[in-house]
C-alpha cells in the first residue's frame, strides 16, 4: 500500500532528478492517472498521449511541488486532468455539431457511476447534494467529463448564458457550503 507520505517522498526525489523515484512514482500512480485520462478523453490512444504529457510535466515540475501546498494526489490528478482537457478541447475545436452534442449527451455520467463514489462521502458530495440535481450534474460533468460551457448548455438544453449563470451561482453556493 502506497501512502500519501510515500507519494510525497517520491515526488520530492523526482524533483531532485531521481529516475528510480520517477519509476516508482509512475508504478504507484499511473493507473489512477490513466483512469482520469480515459474518463476525460474516452479514447485509449489519446489517453496514452495525455498520460505521457502528464508524466513529462511531473518530471519537469516536481521540483516546485513542495511550494504549492497541494496534497500529492491532488497535485498529480489536477495536473493530469488539465492536460487531458487541453487535449479534449484541441480535438473538439471547430467540430461541435448537433449530432455530436447529442452523442455526448448519451454518453453522460450515469447515476450509477456517480453512486459508485464510495461509502465515505466527501464534503463536496454533501454540498453538491444541496444544489438542484441538474446543477450538481453540470458541475460533475465539467469536472469528470471535461465538458465545456457549450456542451453543458447543450446537454441541459439551456442557452449558453443561462448555463454560465447557473454554474457561477452553483459555485458560489458550493463555496458557502464548503466553508461552513
Amino acid at each position: 500500500m502506497t501512502t500519501r507520505q510515500d507519494v510525497e517522498k517520491m515526488i520530492a526525489q523526482v524533483g531532485l532528478g531521481d529516475r528510480a523515484a520517477f519509476s516508482s512514482l509512475y508504478d504507484a500512480t499511473s493507473a489512477k492517472l490513466f483512469g482520469v485520462c480515459l474518463r476525460i478523453l474516452n479514447d485509449r490512444a489519446e489517453a496514452e498521449d495525455a498520460l505521457q504529457d502528464a508524466f513529462v510535466r511531473i518530471w519537469q515540475k516536481a521540483g516546485s511541488y513542495a511550494a504549492n501546498g497541494y496534497s500529492p494526489m491532488t497535485w498529480l490528478i489536477t495536473l493530469t486532468r488539465n492536460l487531458a482537457i487541453d487535449k479534449l478541447r484541441t480535438r473538439k475545436e471547430g467540430s461541435v455539431d448537433i449530432d455530436e452534442v447529442h452523442d455526448l449527451s448519451d454518453a453522460g455520467p450515469t447515476p450509477e457511476a456517480a453512486a459508485v463514489a464510495s461509502s465515505e462521502r466527501s464534503q463536496i458530495d454533501g454540498c453538491l447534494d444541496e444544489l438542484d440535481a441538474d446543477r450538481a450534474d453540470a458541475v460533475r460533468g465539467a469536472y469528470l467529463e471535461g465538458h465545456s460551457y457549450n456542451e453543458l448548455a447543450a446537454r441541459h438544453d439551456v442557452p449558453l448564458n443561462t448555463m454560465r449563470t447557473w454554474l457561477r451561482r452553483s459555485l458560489a453556493k458550493l463555496k458557502e457550503c464548503l466553508s461552513r
Partner: peptide, 29 residues
C-alpha cells in the same frame, strides 16, 4: 482543486499499457 479532486474518487484506476512507460522514459531521458 482540493475539493473537486474528491469527485475523482469514483474514477477506477486502469493500468496503462507497459510500453507507455518505456516511451515516457525515452522522451525524457
Amino acid at each position: 482543486d482540493q475539493h473537486f479532486v474528491s469527485l475523482a474518487d469514483e474514477i477506477v484506476p486502469v493500468a496503462p499499457p507497459p510500453a507507455l512507460k518505456a516511451r515516457i522514459h525515452k522522451t525524457l531521458f
